[in-house]
Nucleic acid binder design. Structure first.
Lengths: 228, 228
DNA sequence: CGGGCGCTTGATTTGAATCAAACTGGGTGG
DNA sequence: CCACCCAGTTTGATTCAAATCAAGCGCCCG
């Protein structure tokens, strides 16, 4: 059971689809009670939270899913933010999970627990289906970004996606949860290229930055260009 | 309802997980009856089969899911082969679907039909969940391939994946369902690079080819190298 | 206060894109 | 039936952008 600081319950409520408020409340409460709450430090491996085919939900912070190749190259395949689910496609032994930032919180559920919850509360089954669809869309869209030709388009597209996924207000600075290295390993670029590209974007006035981690997208139309 | 030529029923049976043979038969038959069978020609758009949030299953041939950018560049995000499901993550308005080869067959189901089937036959719900997990794994793995640095690694990895997904016997030639253009647009490379790379792989004795579409992987260990 | 990590910038190299052109095979129309 | 056409493929020459190699900087954390 996770301690009810309000954020988790509110998150679960938001993720559940039914219009009926009582159904949502009841499902959210059932999730809260069933959840195993864990907290992780920066760069700490958190595969263990998913051990035994468990399903997890990121409550705060961020998690990277990646594969380490024999040449030492790290390929990040997915970045999970608050509300994203882990372990929806089990038996991916070739991937590892790590918390990106300190205080990354994950609520996890045993597989049979999930089954029971789904049977008791069909809304939860619906929700998990929606989260799986989210994962597919997220991966497809990332392929679109990574498939672009120039580094400017890749990094620009990446920033746009991140900006839409993070809770960023209008004209408010987006605080990147990820390092330049993370961006590079997610896009298949060299760190230097990412850094250079962001400098270029800044100099062109397309973005502005207050410190390396704080970005404001000044001209979203230009970065979005070319995406259908 | 699709005409029972045997392949579809056999495919559905294979995709369903329950050990109980009768449950599988009954679920497979329910799917066959509910299905809307369509056949498509090479390069023919088949979005219409998925209209209205329908779900589809590739019975034969292949389907590409892609996005056309304003500069005319085509980015393929997924290649669907026999047994793969379409429309699991709806509202992807930015993607189009096309049959890759002549005689591509798709069985499609209305959304409310799917709902009814799932309720009547829990095995079908399980199956769809598994297919969604397949899609996630397929996309994640493709990101791994596309994230590699050199063209040789990308094309090599691509051929390996294709070889595992197609029904290819040991030491039997794999018949590529896709053109060089498709491979290029899926990997984010130029056609010429794909062609050159395959020539290089052939000259190194890593693959051999009987015509551009028939490939035998001679040294799978080398191509798999670096994948965890 | 020191160390190291994360970020940035510069110089050089390399590999893929691009431009250009020839070849192949299957399909069509005369 | 044959000539033609065209999409797909292959090869070559050149260009260009990103990787690599190298080094300095700022800052957070210990």
């Amino acid at each position: 059971m996770l301690k009810d600081d309000g954020t988790a319950i509110r998150l679960f409520r938001r993720l559940l689809s039914p219009a009926d408020s009582k159904v949502r409340d009841s499902a959210a409460e059932a999730l809260r009670v069933a959840a195993n709450d864990t907290e992780w430090r920066r760069n700490q491996p958190c595969d263990s939270a998913m051990a035994g085919g468990r399903i997890g939900c990121v409550l705060g912070g961020a998690v990277r899913k990646y594969s380490l190749r024999s040449d030492g190259h790290r390929q990040i395949v997915d970045l999970l933010l608050m509300g994203d689910f882990l372990g929806l496609a089990p038996t991916d032994s070739c991937f590892s999970l790590e918390a990106v930032s300190n205080g990354t919180r994950i609520a996890s559920f045993k597989r049979d627990q999930v089954k029971a919850l789904e049977e008791a509360q069909p809304a939860i089954l619906e929700m998990l289906r929606d989260r799986a669809a989210d994962a597919i869309r997220r991966l497809e869209y990332h392929l679109l970004v990574q498939g672009r030709t120039t580094a400017i388009e890749k990094v620009g597209g990446y920033l746009m996606v991140l900006c839409q996924r993070l809770p960023v207000g209008k004209d408010e600075a987006m605080v990147l949860p990820v390092s330049r290295y993370d961006i590079a390993d997610h896009l298949g670029l060299a760190v230097e290229t990412v850094s250079r590209t962001m400098t270029t974007l800044r100099r062109c006035g397309i973005i502005s930055m207050a410190g390396p981690r704080e970005v404001i997208i000044r001209q979203p139309a230009i970065l979005a260009e070319g995406f259908a």
